[in-house]
């Protein structure tokens, strides 16, 4: 498991360095626009989505064909991607938080009271995105997976737009659940864990 995570980190090493330049660009923009939240969102999503980059590199090189000749269980191969994504998110948070606080300190643009719920919501959202993305990419690969993902996002979005009047107001729902928000990241982790079980089941059925 540790070997797989190490291999993924080495694989995306260069990609991470490139992303660092993107982050510096956004750092200046957020300071200029006095928007710490924007930088926070970008950092979390960029680092988390590196797991998808690692999966794409694996797919391009038919890595799974090779990995399955090594004494590594299929469960570990899948789980390593989930652990990698959590590790990258932690790294993103550690990187983002001090910068966001500094921007906040100098701009006073971001109400402290709103920080915690926003932070929790973003982390949960990233967990949920990964919980959806990883099984799709493991099942369909990066090219087909992208199509499936678009279909999965577009169809419910389209239906939601069409039948909007039949759905309750989302802002009311959000304000109602606000007191329970602290459990959201744990719920996100639970969804991610369930997603890992689905991904493992998918992977075990695959042939290479």
């Amino acid at each position: 498991m540790a070997g797989l995570i190490l291999k993924d980190l080495m694989t995306i090493q260069r990609q991470l360095k490139t992303q660092a330049f993107v982050l510096i660009f956004f750092l200046f923009i957020s300071i200029f626009m006095q928007q710490g939240l924007m930088l926070f969102t970008i950092i979390i999503f960029i680092v988390t989505f590196q797991t998808i980059t690692a999966l794409t590199y694996d797919e391009q090189s038919s890595w799974d064909k090779y990995a399955n000749t090594l004494p590594i269980s299929k469960g570990d191969i899948v789980l390593s991607k989930y652990i990698l994504s959590i590790l990258l998110m932690l790294f993103g948070l550690i990187l983002a938080l001090p910068i966001v606080f500094i921007i906040h300190r100098f701009t006073n643009n971001w109400a402290s009271a709103a920080f915690f719920p926003t932070f929790i919501l973003l982390v949960t959202l990233a967990f949920c995105m990964l919980a959806l993305l990883l099984p799709i990419y493991i099942k369909f690969g990066s090219i087909k997976g992208r199509m499936v993902l678009i279909a999965l996002c577009f169809i419910p979005g389209f239906l939601f737009g069409l039948l909007k009047e039949y759905f309750p107001d989302m802002t009311v729902i959000l304000s109602n659940i606000k007191p329970y928000m602290f459990v959201a990241p744990f719920a996100g982790l639970l969804i991610l864990w369930l997603s890992s079980l689905i991904s493992t089941a998918i992977y075990q059925q695959k042939e290479f």
């Binding site: 291999k7 694989t11 590199y57 090189s61 090779y66």
Partner: peptide, 10 residues
């Protein structure tokens, strides 16, 4: 195999 199946950036 007939090729090396590891990520090419390694």
């Amino acid at each position: 195999f007939d090729d090396l199946h590891v990520p090419e950036t390694l």
